[in-house]
Design a protein around this nucleic acid. Structure first.
Lengths: 95, 95
DNA sequence: ATTATAGTTCAAAAACGTTTGAACTATAAT
DNA sequence: ATTATAGTTCAAACGTTTTTGAACTATAAT
């Protein structure tokens, strides 16, 4: 049943965000990229529809795993490395 | 070099296993336990049915996050610390 | 001004994950 | 032998996540 611990909840949210092949692929692409990438280009490279891409980027942003910067028509995304580092550390300390 | 997809798949499997409040609670309980715990007792402590417990433990075992030891009627479980450490390291190296 | 491009939103559909109860196996206790 | 306990399995129900297509907004290019 619902275990209501808000730290646990955000942790679950992060793991849920990571628990999908498309999103993991996005994050790995961003990790290797020298600078910000445009959403649509990432989606195209992974062969997903723009609607689906929009959904996944929104979810990654909600989990604070990426930073989004809208410039004119385009959406530039980068890893939120600080938050990822914090999450890894937490994972390491707890398990 | 084309990155094999099976690595991504097992990674996704691990994150899926972690992406649930009940399973995360189980793992944290196991982490703090001085020795192996009995499935049913863990389930009771978390207030889940035995059927549901069986489902979650099976999933955690499939993801190799726990080690299971059946003794007579009881199922003893411990964290699979070696695999967890490897997963954390991989997470750290890739994101 | 028209058309093209990048992305969003919405609702429906499809896919996937979790819980439930009943029936079951195997071991233990009386 | 009978009854109790620990756990599994199965299918159905229930719940959540993901994909889809169409309609939409906003900016850019011709």
């Amino acid at each position: 049943m619902p275990r209501s611990n808000s730290e646990l909840n955000t942790q679950v949210q992060v793991f849920k965000a990571l628990a999908d092949p498309t999103r993991l692929a996005i994050l790995k692409l961003l990790k290797r990229a020298p600078e910000a990438l445009i959403c649509g280009q990432v989606g195209a490279q992974l062969g997903i529809s723009k609607t689906s891409g929009s959904y996944h980027f929104k979810l990654l942003e909600a989990a604070e795993l990426i930073i989004v910067n809208k410039v004119a028509r385009e959406k530039y995304v980068t890893l939120n490395q600080a938050v990822i580092d914090r999450d890894v550390t937490q994972f390491y300390q707890q398990l």
